[in-house]
Structure formats: C-alpha cells, structure tokens
Design a protein around this nucleic acid. Structure first.
Lengths: 221, 221
DNA sequence: TCTGTATGCCGATCTTAATTTCCAAAAGGG
DNA sequence: CCCTTTTGGAAATTAAGATCGGCATACAGA
C-alpha cells in the first residue's frame, strides 16, 4: 500500500489535465507555490504530533511529495520548524501591537488585547500549538524567539500598567508577564471547552479580571 | 576522552575500601538507595537538557553506573521520566492544597497559594522545568497528568472565586485557569530575573493583582 | 518542429544516534 | 567454597534525518 498512486507518470507522456486528483503525487509546481504547500503540510503534521513526533517522511507524504523535494526547500527539519514559528510569531506580534494601538484608552486597550489573543488561539490553523506548546523549547533559537515575543508583549502591557499605576519598571514588568500568562493559559483552556462559552464572552471575562486587577493598583496593600 | 575513569575495575580485584571516591563507579547499593540515586541523576540530566536532549548514557554516567543498572530499575526512559513527573506533581499538589486549607479567609488564601507557587518554582532541584517546560507534552500520559494537576488547582481556585463572586461554574473555572496561568508564567519570569526582586515581594505583587481582580467581581462590567 | 538546457522530482540508500539487551566477570552471603 | 545477585563492556536494534544519482518535463531558440 505504499505505491498505490504512481500510474500517472509511468503511463506515457500524455499531460492531460494539469491538475491532479487529490491523493496523487503533485505535478510540477513553481518554487514559491511548492514552498507554501510544504509549509502548510509541515504545519499540519507539527501541530498534530509536535516537533519530535513529526517525521519528515510524514510531512513529505502529507504534501504528496518525496523527501528530497522537502530538502530542496528546507535544509533541515529544524529550519522548517523555525520558518513556521517565525511566521506565526510575526503575525501574532502584529495582532498584539495592533490591538494596543487601536485606542488610547487603557481600559479598552486591555480589552482589545485580550480579544486579539483569544482570536489567535482560536484561529483554525492551530498555530498556537506550534508557538505555545512547542516541544523544542530547549533549542536556543526557539526559546530566544519566544522570549523576544514575550518580552515585546509583556513590555507593552507593562507600559500600560506603569502609566496607570506609577509602579516601578521592574514590578510593572512582572505584572505584565503575569497578565500575558493569564491570557495564554486561559485562552488555551477556553479553546478546549469551546462551544460552552462564546469567544467574546470569555475574553471579556478575562479582560475584566485583568483590568480590575491593575487599574489604580495600590502601591501598598 | 570517553573512558577516562575506568581504571578501578581493570586494575586487579583489590576491593580496598567499600566506598569509592567521587567520580568512580559506585559500590553495591541496596535497591532503594540505588533507585533514589538514579532518580536524582535523571532529575539533573532531564532538567539540564530536557527529555529529548537527555541520553540514558549520560544519566547512567552521572550516577556513576552502567546502563544495564539503570534498566534494572526503570523499564524505559519514558517510565523514568514519568516517575519523576509524578513525584513532583504530587508534592506540588500537596503544597497547593495545603496553602488553600491554611486559612478560611479567601484573601489570605490567594496570598498563600501564590507564595507556595513561587516557592515551588524557586526550589533548587528546578523541578518546575520538568513539570512546566516539558518537551514530552505530546505524550498522552504526560499531558493527562499535567491536565489532572491543572484541573485540581484551577478548580480549587474556581471554588474560591465562585464563593466570592457568585459567578457560574463555567466562568469561575475560566478565571481559575487564568489565575493559575498568571502564577506559573510570572513565577518563571521572576526566577530568571532573580536577585532583583525578593520572593515574597514578587508573589505578593501577583497576589494583590489577582485578589483585586477577583474580589467582589461584578457580573456586569 | 527539433534540440539543448535548466528545473523539478523520485526511489533507494546512507548515516548517525540513542535506546535496549546479552553475557561474562566480580562481589558478597551462607 | 559455592551460589546468587549485581555490574559493566560491547553489541543489537531501530528509527529518523539527510543524501545520491538518474529520469522526466517545460521551455527557449534555431
């Protein structure tokens, strides 16, 4: 059951239709399109199995392509993973910073950020599994990229906090990290119990929890 | 440079002293002690390299023991890891539930829980890296154990929240998960920037953030 | 239309690395 | 002194990442 669909190339040169039916090896593709397709296949397999659980064999198979093709586009499994991670982190960063600059009111800012976070987690490519549940965290490149993102995000939140509470940098940053963690963890939990709670209801709940916590935060208890 | 410390056995049978100097292969040990020693060595290597980065070779070497000895105590690398994970999760659960039952005042409860969390993260065996930064999360056994712990903890917090706010189960649980995430993430950040902020100061900051957020949480904004 | 060239693609290996096991030697108790 | 238990060197096994050489296809220019 390995070579079930190979007759197309062996049976003469008749090019017939340029597009093949699903389940076949793909026809020749321009480099860019092939690359995009490989990334999509890798995304699927990485999300389903994690980095270590994913085999290059399976990624190639998912893309209906042989392994050498994969290696013509990405020098290694690790590079392939990093390409996906970078792409997701870039778009997530855009979402976050966009939400932060969507208003000048800090209250609304927190609400917008939380909602953006939930939207990202809910996005149907399950990018969050690659980003927040990576099993390659020990790789220095992976952890440094994640740390860069977390810092960017937490610092932005910390600025809002510092502005609203006059708390010193260091402490505002700790709170920023805490709120970032709250968003991440609660959103992932919400996703698993989806159907029970609407996205906006859930993210608003967390937003109110966060905002009540930080607004006019007292320096002494 | 692989077998640098192997002269003891090759150079005649002279048993000399029953205990060896450090760096040598160990003497015979009662089964329990040997097991404990192996667990300690595994803990060290797993923490330093993650599950996938850790080699049974290195664990055996760290314990000054050969690989077959390791396999006489643990049937596989995975079982060895699970034994450690179980042990850490059990003690963490104890810490949490202990903190929750240390008082009947919800305000103080939250403070005690946060402090306990920070203490666990700060514990010098770095157990938190095995628990919260595992690169074996895709293993069903690992993730189910983690989920069990998270549920236990978040449910306990959710009970406090429900009591204080009259919020429905579902929403209280979401907030519970969020606060658990806040504790985890902020504590790990705090650990990395240690020296800048005292444990009690940091955990109190987070506790106040959490308590302000949840106490008398309004059902409508 | 014919031919040369560059590009895309694949089957079949190669290689490495890490877990797991085999078997003979040593240690210690009765 | 023998017999059971424990130990380690070395090797078997497996699995997965990475590669080699050749074949087919599209297309440009004559």
């Amino acid at each position: 059951m390995v070579h079930e669909a190979r007759a197309d190339r062996a049976s003469g040169g008749e090019p017939a239709a340029p597009q093949r039916t699903a389940g076949q090896r793909s026809a020749r593709l321009p480099r860019d399109e092939r690359r995009a397709q490989l990334l999509a296949a890798a995304q699927e397999v990485f999300v389903a199995n994690g980095y270590h659980g994913a085999a290059m064999d399976e990624i190639a198979e998912t893309a209906h392509v042989s392994k050498p093709v994969l290696y013509q586009h990405f020098p290694s499994k690790r590079e392939l993973y990093l390409a996906l991670l970078d792409s997701h982190l870039a778009s997530l960063t855009d979402l976050m910073l966009g939400a932060l600059s969507s208003t000048t009111d800090n209250d609304e800012r927190v609400q917008a950020v939380m909602r953006a976070y939930y939207r990202f987690i809910a996005s149907d490519d399950q990018a969050h599994r690659l980003v927040f549940e990576s099993d390659l965290i020990n790789d220095p490149d992976v952890s440094s990229r994640l740390e860069t993102f977390n810092k960017t995000f937490a610092d932005a939140v910390a600025r809002v906090i510092a502005e609203d509470t006059k708390l010193p940098q260091l402490e505002a940053q700790l709170l920023g990290r805490g709120l970032a963690g709250m968003a991440q963890v609660s959103a992932r939990y919400w996703l698993e119990t989806d159907g029970n709670l609407d996205l906006d209801v859930a993210s608003d709940l967390i937003y109110r929890l966060a905002w009540r916590g930080i607004s006019r935060f007292p320096k002494e208890s």
